[in-house]
Write a protein that binds this DNA or RNA. Structure first.
Length: 85
DNA sequence: TATGAGCGC
């Protein structure tokens, strides 16, 4: 059925936010194993979204349920299951 | 000193 992995897509994130802050925030719903902020290859600026990887898929799904729409540094986060390439 | 939908080094 679902081929989705343990990574979640985090959109609408503040431009000035570190992976540590994101990991700390998502650590509330599960065991975060990795956080990757997506930067632009051409300019090097943050593109405004990131990916958070969880140790378990349950943590990823809980992050979607609990943190999707949650406020983070004044922005409302968009959390969804990542494509997991 | 910037920007704001969307899926990646």
């Amino acid at each position: 059925m679902s081929g989705q992995g343990f990574s979640v897509y985090v959109g609408n994130a503040p431009f000035q936010t570190s992976e540590e802050e994101i990991g700390n925030f998502f650590s509330n719903v599960g065991n975060v194993t990795n956080v990757r902020i997506v930067y632009d290859r051409e300019t090097g600026r943050p593109r405004g979204f990131a990916f958070v990887e969880f140790a378990d898929e349950a943590g990823a799904q809980k992050a979607v349920q609990e943190l999707n729409g949650a406020e983070f540094n004044g922005r409302q986060l968009r959390v969804n299951l990542a494509n997991n390439k």
